[in-house]
Amino acid sequence: MKAGETPTRELVRDPMAFTDRVTADARDGWPVEAGRYRLVINRACPWAHRVNIVRRLMGLDEAISLAITDPIQEDIDGDAHWVFTEKTGSPGDKDPVLGIHALREAYLARRPDYTGGVSVPGLVDIPTGHLVSNDFAQLTIDFGIEWAALARPGSPVLYPEPLRDEIDALNEVVYRDVNNGVYRSGFAPHQESYDRAVTALFARLDELEERLTGQRYLVGDTITEADIRLFTTLVRFDAVYHGHFKCNIRKLIEYPALWAYARDLFQTPGFGDTTDFDHIRWHYYYVHSAINPTRVVAAGPDPRAWLTPHHRETLGGRPFGDGTPPGPPLEPVPALD
Results as ranks from 00 to 15, higher is better:
Glu172Met: 12
Ala44Asn: 03
Ala26Trp: 02
Leu39Pro: 00
Gly323Met: 08
Pro96Phe: 10
Leu234Asn: 05
Pro156Glu: 07
Asp77Trp: 12
Glu166His: 07
Thr19Ala: 10
Thr88Asn: 06
Glu209Leu: 06
Tyr241Phe: 15
Pro7Phe: 09
Ala137Met: 10
Tyr241Asp: 04
Pro7Glu: 05
Asp238Tyr: 04
Pro71Ser: 08
Ile68His: 05
Leu205Gln: 04
Ala169Phe: 04
Ser155Ile: 02
Thr233Trp: 07
Gly323Thr: 11
Phe187Val: 11
Cys45Leu: 06
Leu158Phe: 09
Asp28Cys: 02
Arg211Gly: 00
Cys45Tyr: 07
Pro15Glu: 10
Thr232Tyr: 05
Arg176Cys: 01
His101Val: 11
Leu163Pro: 00
Val219His: 08
Thr199Glu: 13
Asp168Glu: 13
Ala257Leu: 09
Asp70Ser: 14
Glu62Ala: 14
Pro301Ala: 07
Trp282Pro: 00
Glu5Ser: 10
Gly272Pro: 02
Gly316Leu: 05
Arg263Cys: 10
Lys246Glu: 11
Pro328Gln: 02
Leu315Gly: 02
Glu254His: 06
Glu33Asp: 02
Leu123His: 09
Ile145Val: 14
Cys45Ala: 10
Asp125Pro: 03
Asp206Arg: 13
Asp278Tyr: 06
Ala44Leu: 08
Ile100Trp: 13
Ile141Trp: 10
Phe202Cys: 07
Leu212Lys: 10
Arg36Val: 02
Asp264Ile: 00
Asp135Pro: 06
Arg318Asp: 08
His81Ile: 15
Pro15Cys: 09
Ala239Tyr: 06
Lys2Val: 01
Leu315Phe: 03
Leu108Thr: 13
Asp264Lys: 01
Arg236Asn: 08
Leu108Trp: 12
Asp113Met: 06
Ile64Asp: 01
Asp337Phe: 00
Pro96Val: 11
Ser155Cys: 13
Gly117His: 13
Ala3Gly: 14
Leu170Cys: 06
Asn42Trp: 00
Gly243Val: 07
Phe187Thr: 12
Ala257Asp: 06
Ala290Phe: 02
Ala26Ser: 09
Leu252Lys: 11
Arg27His: 13
Gly181Val: 12
Asn134Pro: 03
Ile249Arg: 15
Leu330Ile: 07
Ser289His: 12
Ala80Val: 11
Leu307Lys: 05
Gly220Met: 10
Gly272Ser: 05
Arg304Ile: 01
Ile145Glu: 14
Trp30Lys: 04
Pro325Trp: 06
Arg13Met: 12
Thr314Phe: 00
Thr69Ala: 11
Val83Thr: 15
Pro121Val: 05
Lys87Glu: 14
Ala239Lys: 00
Arg281Lys: 14
Glu166Tyr: 00
His279Asp: 15
Leu230Asn: 08
Asp273Lys: 10
Gly35Asn: 04
Ile53Tyr: 03
Ala290Glu: 13
Glu62Arg: 15
Leu212Glu: 01
Asp227Tyr: 09
